[in-house]
Computed example of a mutant assay.
Amino acid sequence: MKRRHFLSYSLLFLAGCSAIAPNPNPTSATLNIDKLRLTVTDVPEPERLLQDYETFRQELEAVLGIPVEFVPVNNQIEAASALRLNQVDMALAGPSEYVVINARTNARPLIGITRPNYYSVIATKTGQNIESLEDLKGKTIALSDVGSTSGHLGPTKLLIDAGLDPQTNVKVLMLGDEGSIEAIATGAVAAWGGSAVDYSTFLNSEEEFPIIAETPPLPSDIFMVNSQLDSRTVAALRDRMVENQERLIAALVEGESTQKYKDSELFEAQDSDYDLIRQVYEAIGEGELIEN
C-alpha cells in the first residue's frame, strides 16, 4: 500500500489557520500540547476536509485555545498508522473503524457523538412470505458495504440474535447501497438490511417493503485520541469539548457530508460501548481484524 507522508500538508492548511482566541471555558485540567493534529478517517481528500470540516476546525481551535491542524489519511489503516507513530493526536471515526484502529494502536475513546436515527433495519418485500427473521433461514439477504456499521454489522447482529449463523444459515450478498436496494426492489433477494435512513430515503413503504426487525441505537461515532497523550491533556480535551458541545455541533453541521450530525450530542465514550461491533466481527469469522 502506498503510504502518504502525513506531514506534507502543512502548506495547504496554513491558509485555514486563524488567530487563536483564549479558551472561554477553562477547566482544572491542562492541555500539555501546543497544537492538536486532527484526522477524519473516512475523508481522504484534503479538499473535502476543508469543505466539510473547516468551520469545525476553527471552532475547536477557539474552544481549546491551541492550533488545530488537519492530517488527511486515505483509510482506517493509515489512520491507525498515524496514531501509532504519533503523527495524529485525535481521529473522528465510525464505530467499526474505531474497534479496528483500537486493536492496532490502543488509541483511547474520548468523545462519542450521537447520530439521530442511527440504527439498522431488515426489510423484506411483500409476497415473499417472510414475517420474521427466522423465516430467512436458507434465503438470501442483500447488505451494503463490508464493515459498514449500519449497512453490514447492524443487520448481521439482528440475524445472530435471531439464532441465525450469518455464515451458514443465510446467504449474504454485499452489494453496496445502490445494488442492495435494487436487489430487494426487483425481488432478487428475500430481504434487505441497512440503515434506517437509507430505508426511509429509498424504500419507505411498509406496505411494499415491511420491516421485520430493527436494532436499538447503534454505537456512536467517536473521537479517539493517541495513546501517548497524557491523562491531564485527555481530560482537558474531553471536558472542553463536552462543555462547548453546542458550539462544536453547530460548526460541524456546516459541511455537506456532516448533516448526519444534526441534533447530535457529545458524551464521554467508553470502550465497552463498542463490544457489539466486536461480537459481530467474531461471528462473521473476521476476529483477526480486532485482535490486539
Score class of each variant (00 low, 15 high):
G151P: 00
E243T: 12
S81T: 11
Q279L: 11
P219G: 08
K125V: 10
V88Q: 05
A80P: 00
E47F: 12
G147Y: 07
S120K: 07
I290W: 12
T27F: 05
G285P: 01
A183T: 03
Y119A: 01
L133T: 08
A190Y: 09
I111V: 15
A251C: 05
V172L: 08
G176H: 04
D263V: 06
G163C: 10
T105I: 04
T55K: 11
S120C: 03
T30R: 12
N204F: 10
P72A: 13
A82W: 00
P72F: 05
K260E: 10
L60W: 06
Y98C: 04
Y281S: 02
L83V: 03
S257M: 06
D52F: 11
Q58T: 13
E214F: 08
D52K: 05
A82Y: 00
A213T: 08
S132E: 11
F13P: 05
Y199G: 05
A19G: 10
S272Q: 13
Y199Q: 05
G151D: 07
L203I: 06
S200Y: 05
P210Y: 12
K260D: 02
L36P: 02
T156K: 00
Y274C: 02
L133N: 11
S200A: 15
R104G: 11
D177Q: 15
P46E: 02
E214V: 04
A191Q: 01
V197R: 14
K260H: 01
L38Q: 11
K139R: 14
L49N: 01
L159H: 08
N75V: 00
L164C: 06
E78P: 00
A93L: 14
L83H: 03
P217R: 09
Q270I: 01
I290Q: 09
F56A: 05
S227P: 10
R238W: 05
E282S: 10
R240K: 15
F202L: 07
Y281V: 06
V280T: 08
S200Q: 13
E291I: 06
Q128K: 15
E288A: 14
V234T: 12
H5K: 14
T215Y: 06
V197D: 11
A103M: 00
T126K: 15
V172K: 07
D34E: 13
I141N: 02
S180W: 09
L229P: 04
P116I: 08
N129T: 09
F223V: 04
P217A: 13
D271Q: 07
D42N: 14
L252R: 11
S28E: 14
F223H: 06
S81F: 12
A15P: 00
D177R: 15
N244E: 09
N204E: 09
F70D: 03
L85N: 13
L153I: 15
I160E: 08
G285D: 01
L12D: 01
E206T: 13
G16I: 08
L159F: 04
D135L: 06
A91S: 14
V71E: 03
A196V: 05
D42P: 03
Y119N: 04
P44E: 07
A15L: 11
L50G: 14
F56C: 01
L11G: 04
S148M: 02
L266T: 03
E254S: 12
S205Q: 09
Y274H: 02
P22M: 10
I141C: 03
Y9D: 11
E256D: 13
L143C: 03
I141M: 02
A188H: 05
V43K: 04
K260C: 03
S132V: 10
V170N: 00
